[in-house]
């Protein structure tokens, strides 16, 4: 009986492991000139944040380059599982394997050495990798800055809130850009900054937001996918509003009601660039920055709230700032100097 039980438990564990990941594919007609792209992500393709942005970018690139891209993805890939998944993709002849997260760096570098004929990519990172590894780095301080201008202008209590995940990668850049944006229009504004310590703990994110709202914040933002929890908490407030790091937040009911503006990573441009480089024989060794200057970001106001909340002056200020970002990269090169303890 114990043997039977052991087998049942083993099956149960195996089922659970199987259930915790999923794999889908969509493809163009395979041909000699088709680039096969595989995406490995920590969360899901519909997380209204980091992972969805890349998935949406690849599918948009497929529309921009009809018949050029064959695509497959694997969700909920822990770092320890990503290596075996990537090997499977290599065995299936994929040309480019994107491990979407800085946590996959060591796995990617190890795989790149083992399979020099395959291109790999990971981000966020500004490092220049080996000859078959691309990196990409969203310079998110630009989108954070725009949201900061809006928050600093619209706050009535002179208190704004920011719910971050961990202080690294593009979240750190977005958050510091937000602080700079608020200070640029409202130097006396109190900026409440707190981190949850997790990219995916929605409950803690909502708790942190609730705490900041209780302390008087009436304009809120958050970075990474955990921000959805903070947005949900903001929706409970009768007065507070939200500015978002991801346009996907506008598709939620609370985003429609509370999110005045949001930005998005235009990963489609990155994917198109990667495809072109691979076709021209470049397999890696480059970092692709993402900013307004190279079309790496999109920014939109929420049409449902624009008339009520966005004055012509505010809109002009935001558009003027976007024009400055488009004109030259690195406008906010001092973003890393922001020290939260001085706020």
């Amino acid at each position: 009986m114990k043997k039977l039980l052991t087998i049942m438990l083993a099956l149960l564990v195996a089922m659970s492991l199987f259930a915790s990941g999923s794999q889908e594919s969509s493809s163009a007609e395979s041909g000699d000139d088709t680039i096969k792209i595989a995406l490995i992500i920590e969360n899901t393709i519909d997380d209204k944040g980091w992972c969805q942005a890349m998935h949406d970018g690849i599918t948009q690139a497929m529309e921009m380059l009809p018949g050029k891209i064959e695509y497959n993805y694997s969700e909920k890939m822990a770092v320890v599982d990503a290596g075996s998944m990537a090997r499977q993709y290599v065995a299936e002849g994929y040309d480019l394997i994107i491990a979407h997260g800085a946590q996959y760096k060591n796995t990617v570098l190890e795989m790149a050495e083992e399979y020099p004929d395959v291109s790999f990519a990971f981000g966020t990172s500004s490092e220049i990798g080996p000859d078959n590894v691309f990196t990409y780095m969203p310079e998110s301080e630009e989108t954070g800055y725009l949201n900061g201008i809006i928050a600093g202008t619209l706050t009535k209590n002179n208190i704004v809130g920011l719910v971050g995940p961990v202080d690294s990668g593009d979240s750190a850049r977005y958050n510091r850009g937000y602080v700079l944006g608020v200070q640029s229009v409202n130097p006396d504004c109190k900026i409440l900054v707190a981190h949850t310590g997790s990219f995916s703990d929605y409950v803690k994110s909502s708790e942190v937001a609730a705490s900041q709202l209780a302390n008087g914040a009436d304009m809120m933002t958050g970075s990474s996918q955990q921000a959805i929890g903070a947005l949900r908490a903001t929706a409970e407030s009768p007065v507070a509003m939200w500015v978002g790091q991801d346009l996907a937040q506008l598709t939620t009911p609370e985003g429609q009601a509370k999110c005045i503006a949001a930005s998005a990573y235009n990963y489609a441009a990155v994917i198109v660039e990667l495809v072109e480089k691979i076709e021209s024989g470049v397999k890696g060794g480059e970092c692709i920055p993402m900013n307004f200057n190279n079309g790496g970001f999109i920014f939109e106001f929420n049409p449902a709230l624009e008339q009520e909340w966005v004055s012509p002056e505010l809109k002009a200020k935001v558009e003027d700032q976007i024009a400055q970002f488009q004109a030259a990269p690195g406008v906010l090169s001092d973003w890393a100097l922001v020290d939260y303890s001085t706020l």
Binding site: L12, V13, S16, A19, S20, T44, R232
Partner: peptide, 28 residues
């Protein structure tokens, strides 16, 4: 202890899978 870990993995994995099937992405 082992059975508890199995139940933990089963519950979290099954809830996530059923959620994707019946609901889809993160919803409020």
């Amino acid at each position: 202890g082992i059975a508890g870990i199995g139940l933990q993995m089963f519950g979290v994995g099954t809830a996530g899978t059923l959620f994707r099937h019946f609901v889809g992405g993160t919803q409020s």
